[in-house]
């Protein structure tokens, strides 16, 4: 079966001053559709770089990234932007909601790029907010919400345009335990019940344990996890 995400011998190089930094080197990974994958590793291990490549925010120096049968590593910046708008939902550690907009308006942002009418947008926004349990907070601004609620709004924003791929960068990193568990449960249900493929970067072993599979990165390569988690870059399911 063709994997939903196929990363083939990807290398990413950054130039920092006079020196070259290689956060990822010859990395390969397959992720089937509907899998909830966590990426762990110390700071500077390349996990966020890998997440950005998967999300189409950045492009590799070499290798291929194929997502949902489309090679995204060869797309131009403008093409990547259009692709992201349709196929990717991004969840940030610090939620990154637009402070002057209400929860409803924040969730609406991805839909403003499409051709949906107001009524259809409203239907989708309320459905997304309902799914994350915040339909009654639609008119609240981010400052009026708790951290957990803000992250739920961010998740609603990430799923409102029905992307096949969700990428999450430390989505529970700024939350208390209870809120974090709620977010992880929500992400799990998006993968299990809605068929979303989720790639999550985390430092938290408890968050990683909520995923279907966990991979450990160090110096740009997958390694044996110190806690004995799976190191296979191929899916076990």
């Amino acid at each position: 079966m063709t994997p939903f995400i196929s990363i083939q011998s990807v290398t990413k190089i950054f130039q920092k001053g006079q020196s070259l930094i290689k956060p990822l080197e010859d990395l390969s990974l397959d992720v089937p559709q509907g899998e909830f994958l966590s990426l762990m590793g110390p700071s500077g291990s390349g996990k966020t770089t890998l997440l950005n490549l998967i999300a189409g925010i950045d492009r590799p120096n070499s290798g291929k990234i194929i997502i949902d049968k489309r090679e995204v590593s060869g797309l131009s910046r403008a093409e990547l932007t259009r692709w992201r708008a349709r196929h990717v939902g991004y969840i940030f550690q610090l939620y990154h909601l637009v402070p002057i907009l209400s929860a409803y308006e924040n969730v609406e942002l991805p839909l403003l790029l499409g051709k949906l009418g107001k009524a259809e947008r409203q239907e989708r926004i309320l459905a997304a907010l309902d799914l994350v349990g915040l339909a009654d907070r639609a008119d609240h601004r981010p400052a009026e919400l708790s951290g957990g609620q803000e992250q739920r709004v961010a998740i609603a924003r990430a799923i409102v345009h029905d992307p096949g791929l969700l990428v999450a960068d430390e989505p529970t990193g700024d939350l208390d335990r209870e809120s974090a568990d709620g977010i992880l449960k929500l992400l799990g249900s998006l993968a299990d019940d809605h068929g979303k493929t989720i790639v999550m970067v985390t430092h938290d072993p408890r968050a990683a344990a909520a995923a279907h599979r966990s991979l450990h990165l160090e110096k740009g390569r997958f390694v044996e996890s110190p806690t004995g988690h799976s190191v296979s870059a191929s899916p076990s399911r």
Binding site: R82, Y90, H96, L113
Partner: peptide
């Protein structure tokens, strides 16, 4: 700056 980056991440083009 970051808000702009978030919009770009959501798929807003540089033109937009």
């Amino acid at each position: 700056v970051r808000e702009t980056a978030i919009l770009q991440t959501l798929g807003y083009s540089r033109w937009a």
